[in-house]
Design a protein around this nucleic acid. Structure first.
Length: 448
RNA sequence: CGGGAUAUGGCGCAGUCUGGUAGCGCACUUGUUUUGGGUACAAGGGGUCGUUGGUUCAAAUCCAGCUAUCCCGACCA
């Protein structure tokens, strides 16, 4: 994938990627263990992590896919501060409701501040300053930003951290009907986003919880290690959004219906009678990880925060709003939960930190190293992202690291292959290897 | 917040019951060896045993407080 800020290649002699042979014993679930072993993250406190270069690179790729899909539906990316004034929250009435989960801070003037757990209040306040008329609507705005929720019990690595990266989007409409159109766009864009990230995310009717409101869906990745128990019709899983022709300016209701008409539910919303209607052969009861949640909450925030605009008849109407979240750092872990084997991570190509690993197994052989150096440049010139293992360590260790970090392809170059004029191309998913010319290998990797 | 557990070198662990100046594997450094799946041998470096206090001639080890981290529950992207 083309990204705006990531370099196309790294030499592992220069790259900071501290892989571990054993996972720290604190890590209990596979995504946490693999992220630590691959040198992607480091725990700083309970539920708070540093993102090391490899992890940060993947996080950036995930963010970029999310942004791209949001841009397609006309959502506008912006950035709000992580630190907010308590005043706004007192106005909305959530300052007390949010309770201990909100990290409160006093500044030097003893002003009450807080590290934002979410941004409904702030975006509403911002929008209220500018929106005057129904002509300013509808609007859909989002950001990808760090949040802090002081969870009672952080666990499972970045899956349930206290500090986490979240895409939070907010929709503004003049009435429920107009909001429904935004909601449908978001719904479809989420399906596409998760599909592009290489995971199956199933939308499920959700409880609106403390955010409040009327309409809500959760998006859940299937993984045996998931926290929620889920029940769904196999046919929902088999649907493929990337095969659908989508016109975001047209009517999306048929697509939304297609994804919501079959039964899919978490245990919280489970209805025995509905489940009974699903044919036994289609019944799938498994576990899942919630990676996205979208809400329509009507005028819940616009009323107390005074967000009104003039309607066609000149009367002031409170806006109808929704908020839409994707747990970016969580989906990272979710992808690994869904995509790994006994050797390590098997990244979907869209989020793999590099397209290919280039392994020099005959480092001491001048000719081999010279050839590898050339290949390294050529791959980058072909827009292939490459991790070049030019470290002076055993071949086995190099192979193991490549498998651990989950690159889709590895090109192995050694004295023997040089003599034959070939390279060995290895597929991470199948484990199969083939001897090819370097040019053939490039074409296969490019044809991902 | 209730219940349970842990804290010894970068990582994984032993030693604690039965106090006697800290050990193993991996990793790291140097040399030889090996050279396409974590090679072998040799020689090294690195730890105030979470913290504070107590008992004792002597504490990683016994006792108490504190802190951190993890697991199970209720809450959540």
């Amino acid at each position: 994938m083309q990204t705006t800020k990531l370099c196309k290649g790294v030499r592992l002699t220069e790259f900071f990627m501290p892989t571990l042979r054993n996972a720290p014993s604190d890590a209990k679930i596979v995504s946490h263990q693999l992220m630590l072993r691959a040198g992607m993250i480091r725990q700083e406190s309970s539920g708070i992590y540093s993102w090391l270069p490899l992890g940060y690179r993947i996080l950036t790729k995930i963010s970029e896919i999310i942004s791209q899909e949001q841009n397609k539906i006309g959502a506008c990316e912006m950035l709000m501060p992580t630190i907010q004034s308590a005043d706004l929250w007192k106005k909305s009435g959530r300052y007390d409701d949010y309770g201990q989960e909100m990290l409160r801070i006093n500044d030097r003037h003893n002003q009450e501040m807080l590290f934002g757990p979410t941004n409904e209040e702030m975006i509403t306040d911002i929008f209220a300053n500018f929106a005057q008329s129904y002509k300013d609507l509808p609007k859909n705005i989002f950001q990808i930003q760090w949040k802090f929720r002081d969870e009672i019990r952080p666990r499972f690595g970045v899956m349930r951290g206290r500090e986490f990266l979240m895409k939070d989007g907010y929709g503004f409409a003049i009435d429920e009907e107009q909001h429904k159109k935004i909601y449908n766009k978001i719904f479809v864009s989420y399906l596409r986003t998760f599909a592009r990230l290489g995971v199956k995310a199933i939308p499920m009717q959700a409880d609106t919880g403390p955010i409040g409101g009327k309409l809500s869906h959760e998006f859940i990745i299937l993984a045996d290690t998931g926290e929620s128990e889920i029940f769904c019709d196999k046919e929902v899983i088999d649907l493929d959004i990337l095969q659908e022709k989508i016109d975001y300016r047209g009517d999306l209701e048929p697509i939304v219906n297609k994804w919501t008409e079959k039964y899919a539910s978490t245990d919280e919303m489970f209805v025995e009678q509905e489940w009974a209607k699903v044919p036994d052969t289609n019944k799938i009861a498994t576990r899942g990880i919630e990676v996205g949640h979208i809400f329509y909450f009507g005028t819940k925030y616009s009323e107390p925060l005074g967000l009104k605009v003039a309607d066609k008849d000149g009367s002031l109407k409170p806006l109808h709003m929704g908020s839409y979240g994707i747990g970016v750092s969580r989906v990272f872990a979710g992808i690994i939960e869904a995509c790994h084997d006994e050797k390590g991570i098997v990244f979907p190509s869209s989020v793999a930190p590099f397209d290919v690993g280039l392994v020099n197994v005959s480092l001491k052989d001048e000719n081999c190293t010279k050839t590898c150096d050339e290949y390294y440049e050529t791959l980058q010139n072909n827009d292939i992202e490459v991790a070049y293992d030019d470290r002076d360590i055993g071949a086995g260790a190099k192979f193991s690291d490549m498998e651990l970090i989950g690159l889709p392809w590895v090109i192995v170059v050694g004295k023997k292959s040089i003599e034959k004029g070939l390279v060995e191309l290895k597929n991470r998913t199948t484990g199969q290897t083939q001897d090819l010319s370097f040019e053939q290998a490039i074409n296969i990797v490019k044809g991902k």
